[in-house]
Design a binder for these strands. Structure first.
Lengths: 153, 153
DNA sequence: TACATTAAGGTCAAAGATGGTCAGGGGGAG
DNA sequence: CTCCCCCTGACCATCTTTGACCTTAATGTA
């Protein structure tokens, strides 16, 4: 684990996996202390790896007795489908696209093979069009494939 | 070993052979340092000798803790495979692409769901780029998705 | 109650750390 | 002599890490 962000991400995900209810509560300063990093580094990890579209819900509270609470959300296609499409929007970066695929795989909505295909089709070296059009094509490809899968559920 | 590109290629292939899982992770700058060459030389080697069609899957990441990960894809001995890739070529129409997918499904190389994804990703209304580039992008997307499946075979 | 103090967490911009791209030069095989 | 392959360097894109400064909540104290 070359960088800290990944290590912190893993740490939190392990805690979530070990928790019975998929909820974990921690203190920013304490976690920063544990990894000997700036407290704002924790915010960076939360912002890049535990966003709503990735299936996590983060609540915080400041002041004495403050905390950061992270909850794993389950994906309910009938409810979250539209939200996911809105998240993809007209244009999406490779990183965010992959985050969405990672979530769908975690939720077992797509198989490992299907996830690999989705990722492959989103690569920058595959969609050889200049930005910002590449992100637009990626959004279209991703949505088209997801719609195709939707028909089977 | 007259030229450096070959030496670097051999170096990486040796590492892959020695690895138990056919995956090797390295750092571009470090490898360039080892061979006393420009970092971009590594990209040249990757681009010319470790392409998807040659059975290698390359993933990279920038920034702190960045890396280059190379995975050997399992070898598919069938002649059909190579033939299919030649058929796809650099560029392919939607109709011909769909014909290939139909055949893959008949031969049970891909599931019904996967076939639906492949077709969806090849649509002309999805790949909104003007001809002849659309056919080029379609060929790249199709090949990338099929090669991604080789990781599982 | 009002205010001060302490204890959290939040934001954002800048710097650092990698890898990517592309145009162009050099050299050898036909 | 030409073409193709190799190689480099300047400039670009992306991801990480930190630090200075800000906001909010709980608690102590007059």
């Amino acid at each position: 684990m070359a960088n800290m962000a990944d290590a912190i991400e893993q740490y939190i995900k392990t805690m979530l996996a070990e928790s019975s209810d998929g909820v974990v509560e921690l203190q920013r300063s304490q976690l920063a202390e544990l990894f000997s990093c700036a407290p704002s580094q924790i915010n960076y990890v939360l912002a890049t790896r535990f966003q709503l579209e990735q299936g996590y819900f983060v609540e915080t509270r400041r002041g004495g007795g403050g905390y950061v609470r992270i909850t794993v959300l389950s994906f309910d296609p009938s409810k979250d489908w539209q939200l996911m499409f809105d998240t993809i929007g007209e244009s999406i970066s490779q990183a965010r696209g992959e985050a969405i695929v990672a979530r769908l795989m975690r939720e077992e909505y797509v198989t490992e093979r299907e996830a690999a295909m989705l990722k492959a089709a989103m690569g920058r070296d595959v969609l050889t069009v200049n930005l910002p059009w590449r992100d637009v094509i990626r959004a279209q490809v991703l949505k088209a494939m997801l719609i195709a899968l939707r028909k089977f559920s």
